[in-house]
Design a protein around this nucleic acid. Structure first.
Lengths: 202, 202, 202, 202
DNA sequence: TATGAATGAGAGTTCATTCAT
DNA sequence: AATGAATGAACTCTCATTCAT
């Protein structure tokens, strides 16, 4: 069993799989899960319709794989940006800035995420929420708790607060237009939120 | 008692029509637009499958009628509750309280609203946003502007602020579970928001 | 049982029935039998959809009644015109002239006739052919046989010849456009046919 | 042997496609367009109901393809037979003979042709007339004009005359019974027509 | 007689999925 | 691994017909 060949096949496999997932992103984004057409996805990726079943066992499995991919990619992006700052206040600002940026630069992925989080399919919703747990953790462990410890933020339930911030972020994300413009500026939001968080309030 | 007028009103808001809209609410809420089955709706309302087409010209027309109904009913509910208070601060608290209440008591309607606002169908999204304009107006004209005039809130762009509050409200609404429980208490939210709005901040 | 009332009802019955048949003519002409919509017919006649079933037991029965009406009315028209002439040659010319006239002035009835004669429904086709037997008789007994007896036409099988002339007439009728214009002038046809019939030929 | 070209030709004139068109011919012939059942066609061709949509985008598209096929096949048949003769008179006789033959041997195709030419659907009618233009040309360019030039026929408008002959032919075709018997013998018709055409008449 | 709400069989069409090549 | 013809369940929508009023 030559190792080299295995690696090559993996590479090809990976490439095709990614092409299919990319095409799926656009289709699911513009049509929703039920409205999406599996054959169209395979064609858009440059393959015949049967090909997609060599990589995903069903339409549902494809969506679940896509959900995982989106959540992981989004999280990676956010972690990288947020950690560029040290100060929790700056980190919070970065969180909203980077969050909007990611959505604007990944409109289809963003739309899939929001559609799944708000859509009626319980399995997809759950999987998406699970995928976004690391981002909750990022908010809690690397922004809110340090901020409270440093006395920058008042003492709040970090879990509930992180939930509120995620909710707010997702809500704002859903106002991003198809052309990638948001009605609400991230700095403005961050400023507003910092008022609610800041020490001395209440 | 003019018979013609009666008949016309019946046509627009007859018993059968309402039964169908109610059944449609549940079906669309649990299955989404594309996943919904129009025969099942008619059956669930207690009629044969063809009957629904005596009232709505297509599945799409049914959804549009439902969107209008939901937006109007939601707005009516909010207006009634919010106006029971005079003070803008109390009104803002009421806004979040009543908002959550409405969603908890109208889970299916709420889910339809959120699914449409975040879903991929541009026409439905637009129609829903249009239907919610009166609620934006309620926030602006009866809460934010009076609050600023009374010096309770700092001077902010009322339109952007109303957008932020609606976004926040809708985001919170989307966290209400299928059993009608929200992770975020409305008073807590309102408190947080009031910090961001209050005079003397920033 | 007052006789007067009976008569009135008959009159109303007759009027309504005729209105329905008129509307049916247009609908069947433009949509064909299967494509025709019974409700639309009733509405076009000024009645609610149920009404038509007070006069015709089914869509099929309506069409059969219409076929009889068309054939009888067409025949009446032709007899009246043809008998205005005495000479068989003039009568033959009149036959084509009046035939085209009738179609041009009764476009919908004409189209129903032609559609039924050429359509796939055996029952309708048969009924229509039966309805047109009197016109065959008119050709045979009042044009061809007298013409042969007077030595104006050569001796031909009158039945086959009548069949040919009817076939030709119906074929020409089918070339009449929706605006009521025919590509072939009736005099020209009649002239051509008279060449084929005339004594001394062959 | 380029594989691609094979595939393309298969797509246009593959076995399955032809089987479907054959089944469609019978169904449309016996039921008319609106009465035809597309599932029945696919089943009759030996396939599942969905299969037909792999070859024709809609019922209407199927009919249009069938119209083209019928017109082309009919024309091919006529050209081959008519050109076996040199003399315009013999060619005209052949025209009627072969025409009847074709209908008798292709009853379903013939019925579809006649139904479409006389039916209420404008698009089908137009397409069928267009498909039959080559047969008009055959009459004009290879029978009537040569006959006039040779002095066998009198000088007539060739277009109008061709129209009359086609009309007559189609009319006669419509009298062919379901068992394939015509009331009018083709020689008899041709003889009658030649009387109308012959030099020295009028 | 006239009405029109309700019915439900039936049609065209879509598309996820299978599988032989 | 890739293909694409074939499948058939499922869905939206139509409309002839019934019937209580």
């Amino acid at each position: 069993m030559p190792r080299h060949k295995e690696t090559e096949r993996d590479k090809v496999m990976g490439k095709t799989r990614l092409l299919l997932l990319e095409a799926a992103t656009d289709e699911f984004a513009s049509e929703g899960y039920n409205g999406a057409n599996i054959n169209r996805i395979s064609k858009a990726a440059g393959f015949a319709k049967g090909t997609i079943y060599n990589y995903f066992s069903s339409k549902r499995a494809l969506m679940l794989a896509l959900i995982d991919l989106i959540a992981a990619s989004h999280h990676r992006y956010m972690v990288e940006r947020v950690r560029q700052e040290e100060d929790p206040i700056r980190r919070l600002q970065r969180f909203f800035e980077a969050g909007l940026e990611w959505i604007v630069h990944n409109l289809s992925q963003g739309r899939v995420m929001l559609t799944m989080l708000n859509g009626p399919d319980a399995e997809f919703k759950l999987r998406m929420w699970q995928g976004y747990q690391p981002m909750h953790q990022l908010l809690i462990a690397e922004i809110l708790v340090p901020g409270m410890e440093l006395g920058l933020f008042r003492q709040l339930d970090p879990v509930a607060t992180a939930g509120l911030l995620m909710t707010l972020y997702l809500g704002i994300g859903s106002t991003v237009s198809d052309e990638g413009r948001s009605q609400l500026a991230p700095e403005w939001i961050a400023g507003f939120v910092l008022e609610g968080l800041r020490q001395g309030a209440g």
